[in-house]
């Protein structure tokens, strides 16, 4: 109940669509379990038990996956797909942030479950040798968000690289006067599974600087300013996959003309 109330508050600012999904959102902290399935490369399963409900979830689809030596913050929504290739119902979309809380590493056998054959995620970039199509205008001020793991400023592979690649393709065509990169941190403390969680205020600045440095390398010569803000609020950007907490942990690249 408490969790639902908290979720409601968090999502107050989001669209009707996101708000409608709110009831289904799941968030907890736990030690991950690796299920050693083998359907080829990257086919192992990640499982996570919500201690409050006793429910074991398949959290494998997170763009940043767990480390079996550390606790994870799980955030997600039950998948529309009822298949259970890892032996538990799946969260999808889902995020699993590595926390600095040590865990006893635990691996269980496949027990007959197939795992998932790896497929290239939708958010993947082509090699540099493949030309990006020039995106259509209008070329007016526009904001491109990128998203992070809890309390980290690390650019997420096959997520942020794709978001940035798209942004850069547009920026190269649009030729704005400058970029303003604003880093956000979700600093308001919340208690999840008995663990008090808040992002460090500094991570807002770290995110701004990390993304600014990347933009300087990708569009050299274009002026890049940085700003940072704490107490981030959720947004309804679809690239946060309807997960309000993910949408808070972001940086925004704003192209200014």
């Amino acid at each position: 109940m408490k969790r639902l109330a908290l979720l409601g508050a968090l999502c107050a600012a989001t669209t009707a669509q996101a708000a409608q999904d709110t009831g289904a959102l799941v968030r907890f902290v736990t030690c991950p379990v690796y299920r050693d399935t083998d359907a080829g490369r990257k086919s192992g399963c990640w499982l996570a038990d919500d201690r409050d409900t006793g429910q074991r979830w398949d959290v494998t689809e997170s763009p940043y996956k767990p480390d079996w030596n550390f606790a994870v913050l799980v955030e997600g929504r039950p998948s529309a797909n009822a298949a259970q290739p890892c032996g538990s119902p799946a969260l999808d979309p889902v995020r699993t942030s590595r926390l600095d809380i040590p865990c006893t590493r635990h691996m269980i056998p496949a027990e007959g479950f197939p795992g998932r054959r790896y497929t290239l995620p939708r958010r993947n970039i082509g090699p540099l040798s493949v030309a990006r199509p020039v995106p259509p205008g209008p070329y007016v001020a526009r904001t491109f968000p990128v998203y992070f793991e809890f309390d980290k400023d690390f650019l997420v592979y096959q997520y942020d690289d794709w978001l940035i690649d798209n942004a850069v393709t547009w920026i190269r065509a649009a030729r704005p006067k400058k970029l303003v990169v604003t880093g956000y941190a979700a600093t308001a403390p919340e208690t999840v599974s008995g663990v008090k969680l808040a992002e460090r205020p500094e991570v807002a600045k770290e995110r701004a600087e990390t993304i600014a440095e990347t933009m300087r390398r990708l569009v050299p010569g274009l002026a890049v300013e940085t700003k940072w803000k704490t107490a981030a609020k959720p947004t309804d950007d679809p690239e946060a996959d309807g997960l309000p907490w993910q949408s808070q942990r972001r940086a925004e690249i704003r192209a200014v003309f």
Partner: peptide
């Protein structure tokens, strides 16, 4: 190959 260094979490250095 690609514009990023996924191990460092940045675009490639110039």
């Amino acid at each position: 190959g690609f514009p990023f260094d996924p191990k460092q979490g940045y675009a490639l250095p110039l």
